[in-house]
Design a binder for these strands. Sequence first.
DNA 1: CAGCCTAATGCGAAGAAATTGCGTCTGCCG
DNA 2: CGGCAGACGCAATTTCTTCGCATTAGGCTG
Lengths: 192, 192
Amino acid sequence: MSARATTRPGGRSARVQQSVHQAVRDLEAEVGRGALTVPLIAARAGVTPSTVYRRWGDLRELLSDVAVERLRPDAPPADHGGLRADLEAWTVQFAEEMSSAPGRTYIRDALLGDPGQGSAVRCSDYAAEQLKAIGVRAAGRGEAVPDLETLLDVVVAPLMYRILFRPSELSQAYVGRLVAAALGRAGSPSGT
Amino acid sequence: MSARATTRPGGRSARVQQSVHQAVRDLEAEVGRGALTVPLIAARAGVTPSTVYRRWGDLRELLSDVAVERLRPDAPPADHGGLRADLEAWTVQFAEEMSSAPGRTYIRDALLGDPGQGSAVRCSDYAAEQLKAIGVRAAGRGEAVPDLETLLDVVVAPLMYRILFRPSELSQAYVGRLVAAALGRAGSPSGT
DNA sequence: CAGCCTAATGCGAAGAAATTGCGTCTGCCG
DNA sequence: CGGCAGACGCAATTTCTTCGCATTAGGCTG
């Protein structure tokens, strides 16, 4: 599950976590991701390596923790006045962010670092929350809304599959087809 | 791209590669995946650690290489006399293999161990080849065959997304719905 | 078939990273 | 105000990683 904020903000643990996270982000930009090591990060954060090892276990879990933070949406999905427009805009932005070089790195870090897959679940939940918000808003307008599971299957899953397994271009036309396919199934339940 | 067989079978390089791969498989079963280290593997394989580092770079790439081998299909998809039956059987088997504990481990190793994503592409190609074989056979029977890209989007992608990001149960009913969705789109092109 | 030539491996040392025990300190709670 | 549990710093030890150099295997040419 990686390290979450266990103590209140202002406590020492919280300060250490924040400091280490910041050190990772800084060093990622300065020396590149490949050159990151625990001792290096610890030195920048002003803590000893053993602290990092005890809190996060190893470098991968720490990077996973940081990556999840970066993948967290910073705002609710933009409102374009209609389900199709909202969904298209969100999907385009999502595809661009995730298929970019940094995006791919964050996804891989998030997936790789956490043995219990907790990080991966959180990533999926982020997308699900955004889609759900779009759906709720559309339902408020009286529109027929596709099932959340269907959206994940038809829109998110193909995008992520191509990003992870087939590093090719994701054309806007392709993204449009995914959205169209999702809307064509409005209301049809999927489930697991 | 990891290390491939560069010399002919029987050469020393080939022997070393085979020996190291075998050591990984053996030790994975004996001490568990988490306890694997390069020096340990090298000792078992009868080579020096530096040889492993030179050929594979690091432990992750080596594990990625081995994982891809294990994910390679060992036989063409079974023939059940019809497209739907073939597709359903293949999908069920694929889902079972990939969602099992070892399957998930191999996928993660293959996916995340290779910086160039060459391993991931190979994994995707394996599935694509199997699906293509099913399609060719069905076309020979005169059946309408779904586009390969559509199959990847509608069947493979959702399965892999759930396996990687949402470690929940993959019910046979869910697999059946995926196949049904794919057949419902027979012939409609997708593309990238 | 003999001998060269490239590339991969073995070996060993040096440097870096990971792990662990123990003492200290912070900050929460009675 | 004082105790207590958990987290951190420090330092020694172990293990992993990298690198230069010598050696050898195997392919290739004459």
